[in-house]
Design a protein around this nucleic acid. Sequence first.
DNA 1: AGTCCACAGGAAGGGCAGGCGA
DNA 2: TCGCCTGCCCTTCCTGTGGACT
Length: 405
Amino acid sequence: MNSNNNIFVQYIQKEDIFRDKKTLSSAFVPQKIAHRDIEINQISSMLAPVLRGYKPNNIFIYGTCGTGKTICARFIVSQLKDAVKAAGKGLRVLYVNCKMKGVSDTEYRLFAHLIKEMGGVVPDTGLPTDVVMRKFFDMIDSKDSQVIIILDEIDTLVKKIGDAFLYNLTRADPKKTYITIVGVTNDTSFRDNLDLRVKSSLSEEEILFKPYNALQLRDIIMERVRDGFKDGAVSDEVVGKCAAIAAQEYGDARRALDLIRVAGELAERAGELVVTESHISTAQQKLDLDRVTETVRSQPSHSQAVLYSILRLNEKTSTAGGWKDRRMLTGDVFETYTEICSANGMKPLTQRRISDLIGELDMLGIITARVVSNGRYGRTRDISMAVKDDGLMRVKNLMVERFGE
DNA sequence: AGTCCACAGGAAGGGCAGGCGA
DNA sequence: TCGCCTGCCCTTCCTGTGGACT
């Protein structure tokens, strides 16, 4: 076959807008982190005792989404690791993203994940929790003299499995190893909700990361654009727009990086060599829509059936007829859900379970479910779609594809 | 003030799949 | 193979809730 006939040739020949795309990922840890010098110095000084072989205090880092908490924690710990290595000592760093499903749903899974991070093997289920815990402590005792565990989104973990694991970790008595916990959370009231015994065993220090302002975001994007895009591909105005949008969203740098990266991809796909403000606007819409459809698609079938029943009732309440302007309640959703189940050969779940599924859809931001009391007509939830316009259409199409009209 | 409604939501436990060790 | 352990999803049972109605 003539290589010129290959359908991918056009993509090889196409000029690339990116220099190094991975630097535009929010997970990428740069050589220097802008506008976080004070926080980095504070955390470094807290962790410095590791270099002298002492156990530092546990650290809790607070701050809203995209304020650089995780990236700073990883950056500092990786620098510390190098310094410890240069001093001829050992330090092991374990990172846990507590939001990841299957990683931290239970205490068992958490310790299983930590063991796997260290290269150990443990089945996903089957062993008593204390056996897995003991195995973890045996492993850290047999290797390095210090261990730092970064628990990202630690509030999610505590909500799921309680705070007893923190007590177990901090009160554990390995023979040769110190364990330091670096907890990262966007819940500023996290510490207040801990058990008193856990609080007293933690002996922790706290650092607060304030949101970035538009100027700081601008610097951050600018630095990444310099490494990520080819010269001239992104103008100062485009960076400014990106920063302004992200600043409106509580100074979220992660959002800013996603925006500029997706905008770059859109420009590249259109065969253009410059990212424009219109690419940024389209990227903004695309990111919102992708988030919704991906979330919906990943839901289990009963959850989808509940969502479809809400969609159907939503149409009824917004069009003329007996349902016009009526509020959508849990009982209504359950009734429609039962009909959808029988039409699709599914065995319906109980109303109790559906109540939980409605709560989960609310948590995901796809619907809004507010508990209201209608006096003698009972206490229930007032439900509506949180997704509007294009997002709503996309969700509807997905549901029709799944359950039929 | 007491009653009532339509749930919310907590607690306990059942059933299932799957791993481990005797 | 069997008993015991796990996580997960679910049901059943129960108490609590708050405002309209009597």
